[in-house]
Write a protein that binds this DNA or RNA. Structure first.
Lengths: 223, 223
DNA sequence: AACGTAAGGATCGTTGAACAATTCGACAAG
DNA sequence: CTTGTCGAATTGTTCAACGATCCTTACGTT
């Protein structure tokens, strides 16, 4: 019974001003409050948040390593603005991580998460809630990757989507983007459930090609 | 002609005291000067390197994100001491990244790198230079992963091996560990060269199972 | 002997101020 | 129109300080 407590262990060490500031900034970036390409002034933000410049700089380092911020020497930190090459690379990584996932037999737990994400996306689509479709879609792919049963891969996937959100912020019409994938999620789930790993892998590759093409076409980092 | 200069751009932004300090610490850790589990005193190191505590703390944040240091609140930073579960997870990641690589057809450039690494390992083994075998072995796997043609995956692999080096530091007999893999590298290369991706993938899985088993058996994080 | 508590020292977390280094735009000179 | 120079603004880094937290030791209680 004491063993259950070990679940809460990560929460223990948590909290330091720098990390909490990083959490805030991360959220602000992902919600578009800070736009990609925008410069983040040390003085302005440290004053606004009521922390010292030194502490804020520690936060910047954290987010820089997550590729959310771009640290240019003596020029300051900028919200990262991914290039088209970055988008392609992100999809290369997805093909590897998600491709490995569909070749494995998922645990019951993972399968449940995947099913829920598919259903949530469908439900949100019915209500024209494209914001909701987007987040459900992300949950779908994270659940998919969780089939690999690797904490490090899960973490990498989290970062990857944080980076992709930067792309969505710049995209012309992020809402319509997710639309075709509600059905594709359902189809892919079917292939996975029936254990047809070969077909699932092929469908996934086509899925990601499709998404990458749409994304790059709608993505214009030049303002 | 001016366009060629843009190649050198990455070299410009580089260098800031914090990053250079991080480079030094990274090297010291990988060479075993700082042992896994050891605590790194802010005061002692900042004084020894002649930098301020604040700057050193920025470096610590960088290395913490690379999983080389363990930051415990109010207790300081420690050289990370990977657990057995960590080792297993690292091999899960390797199976995914390297597995995806062997299923692709390598570029000429990548193939050359792989061949060189295999040859260097053999040469080092002939001279009983097990240190050299180890580094050639790492180069072999990095070259293998480079077949994915993804900068992010290359970077992930670099970090992964930096973490594995922590394990090697603690291991009982790191020299003998690499011995069986000189031949296995050669065999895997053969399968790749002949385009038998299915067999190559199967051999790789067995390869990594083998390595993980040996490593975990020889690994005793408890002192 | 096992345990709870208290005191003290060491180290980290964070701040605020200061100064050097660097960037960038404006403006003058050629 | 290009090049050189100046100054304001911002970052890079240091330093000193103080509160907070952890660890150890000692002491007293049960």
């Amino acid at each position: 019974m004491v063993a259950d407590l070990s679940q809460d262990r990560p929460r223990l060490g948590r909290s330091s001003t720098a990390e909490r500031v990083a959490d805030i900034l991360r959220e602000r970036i992902s919600e578009g409050f800070f736009q990609p390409g925008q410069r983040l002034s040390e003085e302005a933000i440290s004053e606004a948040l009521g922390v010292s410049r030194n502490t804020l700089r520690e936060s910047f380092r954290l987010l820089g390593h997550e590729r959310l911020l771009d640290h240019r020497l003596n020029r300051g930190v900028f919200v990262r603005l991914p290039s088209v090459e970055d988008v392609s690379d992100l999809y290369r990584v997805r093909r590897v991580l998600e491709g490995a996932a569909v070749r494995r037999t998922p645990s019951e737990r993972a399968l449940t998460l995947i099913r829920e994400a598919v259903r949530d996306a469908e439900r949100a689509a019915e209500q024209d809630d494209w914001q909701g479709v987007g987040t459900a879609n992300i949950r779908f792919h994270q659940a998919l990757v969780s089939v690999n049963e690797s904490p490090r891969i899960d973490e990498a996937m989290r970062q990857l989507f944080a980076e992709l959100r930067l792309v969505f912020q710049v995209m012309e019409n992020p809402r319509a983007f997710h639309e075709p994938f509600v059905d594709r999620n359902r189809r892919l789930l079917g292939l996975i459930e029936s254990g047809r790993t070969g077909e699932a892998a092929a469908d996934l590759d086509d899925y990601l090609d499709h998404a990458e093409r749409l994304l790059i076409r709608a993505y214009e980092p030049n303002r």
